[in-house]
Design a binder for these strands. Structure first.
Lengths: 179, 179
DNA sequence: GTCTATAGATAGATAGAC
DNA sequence: GTCTATCTATCTATAGAC
């Protein structure tokens, strides 16, 4: 029998999805509460302010980033393949959480900005360990950032063919080296 | 003697800068009016609603994009060099307008989303004409998108050295071709 | 732990004087 | 073309019952 997630998680889910679907502005406490199936008062018992709600989502982000970095390091296809392919999906909790965080970061919420920045720093670390050339590593990071930029703008997902082309293009780039 | 720009332009400037500095949410009609040096009523004479204000900024964006595409086609260093180097600055009206539009697009404003999408389509056209390989062209576009993603997140500007490295890395990528 | 009721602040927009 | 005054709606947050 299916258990409904704890209220706290349902609230964070509702907040995250509302931000993705309709922007930060539409993610009011009332809308989040309704979507999570609680009253405003009930929501404010778990997160005492809107800032606390954002901090809650950033806590979730940090957990997911840590898990992702660990997976990236051990992926059999290598960190670059993993990085590009997982940047693109928008299907999992992780990507959805990142897109929501990106939108909050644009709304000038320092906690969201810092959370994403430290995630970027960790990814760049692993990529630099792999390709050694810092300029190439930074360029690959920019490709990943570009993918998130498009995701967060509601662009459609890449086809499987486009995805394969992109991965192989990035691999050729990684094999290149400055003269 | 310095002429102050017409009120309409001052209002658009104020709107744009407020969005960049503090996010869409802080760019209320009152805040925009104050920054532009008019009253709310004065603002609403020129732009009858917040949506009209957004449409006004999108009109400015379209003009700037058209001018940019024209420059990109005739730049002596070539379209790719021009595309990468100008994606990065955040100093000119054009980049600031794009970043503001990107933030509005994330707030689920369809007009902003459409304006940016058509700009991206035009850039991609020119790049594809230059490098011929569509997968490489798309990858270069993603690098440019990544730069804007970082700009709109308030990341610091690249150093001149990082910029040169990036441009040469992208050029090596452009020289690559699928087997 | 969750609810209702409500306070207090601020948003977008209108009306009409100048 | 610009202003002040004001209306209405909505948002965050608090208080207190259950």
């Amino acid at each position: 029998m299916q258990q409904s997630p704890p209220t706290r998680e349902r609230i964070l889910d509702a907040f995250q999805e509302l931000i993705i679907e309709s922007g930060e502005r539409a993610a009011t406490l009332g809308a989040v509460a309704e979507r999570a199936g609680v009253s405003k008062g009930g929501l404010l018992y778990h997160f005492g302010s809107k800032e606390a709600l954002i901090d809650g989502l950033m806590g979730r982000l940090k957990e997911l980033v840590d898990a992702d970095i660990a997976l990236m390091r051990v992926d059999p296809t290598g960190p670059i393949d993993y990085f590009i392919r997982t940047s693109v999906s928008m299907e999992g909790q992780f990507d959805r959480c990142i897109v929501a965080a990106a939108r909050l970061a644009q709304g000038a919420h320092p906690a969201a900005r810092d959370g994403l920045r430290s995630a970027q720093a960790e990814w760049l670390n692993v990529i630099t360990e792999t390709v050694h050339d810092p300029a190439i590593a930074r360029t690959i990071m920019l490709v990943g950032d570009g993918i998130y930029y498009n995701s967060s703008m509601g662009a459609g997902a890449l086809t499987a063919q486009e995805m394969d082309d992109l991965v192989s293009t990035v691999h050729r780039l990684a094999a290149t080296s400055a003269p």
